[in-house]
Design a protein around this nucleic acid. Structure first.
Lengths: 245, 245
DNA sequence: GGACCGCCTTGATCTGCATCAACTCCCGGT
DNA sequence: ACCGGGAGTTGATGCAGATCAAGGCGGTCC
């Protein structure tokens, strides 16, 4: 719990060649703001990494040397108190950026929660790239502002919402579609465990579980499996999410 | 409670000339990254406003037309739930920037908590200024990242810390000096009320009050007046702030 | 196929903080 | 000097969610 060992990133980096032009996540990410012509130089900087579930990308306290671009999978970002209490700051998915908002050392940890791939950059390279690419800088600023707005919403949730309001808000925030069946917009996949949801919402595992079954008995959602559910009354859920009954 | 009326900002804007070069807050703020030579054009854009305690700079829901630079005083930034529960996102002081992290409409409110002055810019002007001033953009990005890190710390506090840990953290975060006696670094002035502290820390007025008297009886702090206190055992406070006994 | 092991659910009890309720203090107005 | 009201403190009680405890349900490894 809370190891500060300066281990290398637990990832498989045998591969050394990238193909940004053919990257399925490019348009999701900040890389989309880079000219086609400049993708070659991006390839040269990008270091593709593959992570299995549980592998660490970033450890709180380590020297902040890298920036990551998630290309597939999902990642948990969290902070720990000295006695092991954990607050998950957020979950990252394909297209999300990780590791910019830090100084000399990382002030949070990040781990894959399922098999995940990412592009790793040396921070100094990335900084140089930003300097040379005004469009990139603008996009990064915009992203940072979006993240800030999301963080503010989450502070409202953590500081003032009840358990059921937190869970309802969380469900509404999830990308609401099953990639296998894009037509069903009310299906939600939860790649994270109850423990991760709890640590994200400032609750305990048991409370998350109880609230989910409560929502089920209320007829608001249907639990298809522990990691998959269906929203049956989206309006009711929305109303629950901010205390409107 | 939670008015959405599209009122103009409640401020005195008779003055129409600014003097950025002579602004005491310039070096505290992003304006410090603008060349001396360009300050004239900044003057032309800046609209100085004076606010009395309680006056609103920004109302949640209003069209986001302005950006503010606080030059003196202090400001509370908060979000509301539909039933009136309030979460204060943060407090702003001289040099801080307000209103960039928004889209079409403001997603939070901001009010002066004591007599305050600020520079107001039209958002479109500000955007143009950013485009023309790469140095400014870099500084803004850095600021946004700092704010993000602060927001993450606050999520840890709201999600996982106990009441006494929250209050201890809050006290340590306060600028620890009395402007009148700069030598006494252990004096803290609290321009905000207990209600504001409570809404910032996700607690109630009563709990904040009880914790402060508890810290007093423990000998960790001394309460000089409701708005002024002295830290007598900074190490103990630091230890309390993250659960280390 | 059986046994183990995470993860989840459900129930019983406990507790930290919220809520409800006085009361004090300070300050500003008349 | 008095009154009124907002801000703060302190005490009594209540409750939402934590903690403690006991199974259930899949997986996976021999």
């Amino acid at each position: 719990m809370f190891e500060l060992k300066a281990l290398p990133v637990e990832c498989d980096d045998r591969l050394r060649s990238t193909d940004c032009a053919g990257c399925g996540a490019r348009m999701l990410s900040v890389c989309g703001s880079i000219e086609e012509a400049d993708l070659g130089s991006l390839d040269a900087l990008a270091d593709p990494v593959t992570l299995e579930a549980g592998a660490a990308l970033i450890r709180q306290g380590d020297a902040a040397q890298h920036v990551f671009n998630i290309t597939a999978g999902s990642v948990r970002v969290y902070k720990l108190l000295s006695d092991g209490r954990r607050q998950i700051i957020g979950f990252l998915f394909a297209g999300d950026l990780l590791g910019l908002a830090t100084g000399e050392t990382y002030v949070f940890s990040a781990e894959a929660i399922e098999p995940t791939t990412a592009c790793r950059f040396r921070k100094s390279d990335y900084r140089a790239l930003i300097r040379d690419t005004p469009a990139l800088e603008a996009v990064l600023l915009e992203r940072a502002n979006h993240e800030l707005a999301a963080a503010q919403n989450h502070m409202l949730l953590l500081g003032r919402k009840t358990a059921i309001e937190r869970v309802a808000t969380f469900l509404l925030d999830q990308p609401a579609h099953d990639p296998a069946r894009p037509s069903l917009t009310d299906h939600i996949r939860l790649p994270m465990t109850r423990s991760e949801i709890a640590d994200y919402l400032g609750l305990t595992i048991e409370t998350v579980s109880r609230i989910l079954t409560r929502l089920k008995t209320m007829g608001v959602i249907r639990l298809l499996s522990p990691t998959e559910l269906q929203v049956r009354q989206p309006e009711r859920l929305r109303s629950l999410s901010d205390g409107g009954a």
